[in-house]
Amino acid sequence: MYTIDKPLIEYNQMKIEQLLQLYEFLGFIYPEKRKRLDPVMTLIKENWTKALHANYPLFWVGTIVENDKNIVSTATCWQYLNKGMLGQHLASNHPVGSRLIFLNILQKVIENQLINTIDSYQIYYRPQNKYSARMFEPLSSRLGSDLSQIIFYTYCEVPFIKEFLVEEVEISEVDEANRQQFLEFVQMERGEAYIKAQELDSADLTLERLNKKFTMHGLQRKRSLFMACSKKDSKVRGVIISNQSSLGLNFSFLENSSELILDKSSEKYHLTVARLLLGKASSLFPQFPLNYLPVLVDPVHCRLIEKLQGKVIREYNLFIILRGGYESWYEHADNLTRAIYQRFVGQSYERSVTN
């Protein structure tokens, strides 16, 4: 393992105020993002303070300790599902730092994948991020659809929509009675790796077990799932997966995102189904601190969101990897790190000699 003269990474040692200063120093919290966070910053600080006491595997923030190379880096990982992790907030003042802290987190996942049953790991990243593209995309292609997948999303803010009824379409919560129909639709629209990673084939669809763990720390993490079927032929026309968590565990509010998946084979019901499902999702947040619903949709449906007075914010890719691929991922990340680390150490040595 790479070192910088002493143990490299420490976990959950910083308070949220220190982390916020670090994020701003590294440019991870930029003025526009700060503006979006400020109205709910007090609540975010409260939730992060609780989360930082939860520690591994529920919520862990890695930071590179003070070192003579002046590398400053941080990354967060938390238990997003009963058997799945979500990585986020990777920031550094040098490419070496990003790679070192990422390798350390990945090593921890590999060492504990059987002990803590880590069946999946997911990361949202911006498509234009070259580092993320090199880290995830070649690997996903090499592992194939059995172990990995990349899904393209548009992230939107949608005003809350009042629930309503229509004669042509029926909305129902996903349960054991309609689970198979739901899974067949998601399989067609997203694929098998997605179903496994999101644990849509598990007995605990609403994440009750995970929510109990978070509740012990004064937090919550649960979800609700609904599908829309045409009454004429009982065909699924769309589904929505609504995440409900303590606000701000992710600074883009992805922890409370609702993923809207519409039937690509027919556009006839798209607008009606989108409005119905988003109305159902809106009803889950009666006292939500934000004045909008964070929504993830396929990029092709951006115009639908705009018709519902929603605002398109940015594009995200979601990298999914399943257990069985972690070791290949580490090898890939290690290869990306080795050359740049050796170059960095060489440059540091040259500076120390010439100064």
Rank of each mutant, 00 (worst) to 15 (best):
K108W: 03
Y2Q: 09
V295E: 10
H89D: 15
V297H: 04
W78I: 02
E170G: 01
E306P: 02
S224C: 13
N12Y: 08
F59G: 04
M85W: 08
A203P: 01
P57R: 01
P299K: 10
P299W: 11
G97L: 04
F136W: 11
W48N: 00
A51C: 05
S348M: 14
R314M: 15
G191C: 09
S140L: 00
F160Q: 03
Y155V: 00
H94N: 14
Q21K: 14
Q122L: 13
S140T: 13
E331K: 12
I305P: 07
I320Y: 04
S202V: 05
V312P: 04
R275W: 09
F344A: 09
V96Q: 05
Q187P: 00
I9V: 15
W329K: 01
S230K: 15
P7G: 13
S145Q: 03
N67I: 04
N317C: 15
R338I: 07
W329C: 10
S265A: 12
N129P: 10
R237H: 10
V273N: 07
H301G: 03
R314Y: 08
N129I: 11
D204R: 02
E306W: 00
I261L: 13
N335P: 00
G27A: 04
T337P: 01
S92Y: 05
N104Q: 12
E315W: 03
F102H: 06
Q21I: 08
Y124R: 12
S242F: 08
I241H: 10
Y316W: 15
H53K: 12
V169R: 06
I29D: 05
K264Q: 14
A197H: 01
R34P: 00
L304T: 08
T117D: 11
Y349N: 14
T154C: 00
F251H: 12
C77L: 11
N12D: 12
H301P: 00
Q342H: 15
L336T: 00
F319V: 06
S145C: 00
Y349S: 14
P39S: 11
K108I: 04
T337W: 06
D146P: 00
D119R: 05
N178V: 07
I9H: 10
S141C: 02
R34M: 05
G346S: 15
L254P: 02
Y131T: 14
I29F: 11
S230P: 06
I305A: 06
Q287I: 09
E259H: 06
I29R: 02
A91I: 06
I29Y: 10
A228I: 12
V353S: 02
I161A: 07
W329Y: 13
N243A: 08
L284N: 13
H270D: 14
S266Q: 09
V353N: 01
K232H: 11
V300H: 14
N317I: 10
D298E: 14
A51V: 02
L139K: 02
S73T: 09
T117W: 01
Q122C: 06
M188Y: 09
S145N: 09
E199D: 03
V300D: 14
R34C: 00
N250F: 06
E111S: 10
I313F: 02
Q187Y: 10
R134Y: 06
S98Y: 03
Q309T: 14
K264A: 14
Y269V: 03
I71A: 08
K50Q: 02
M1V: 13
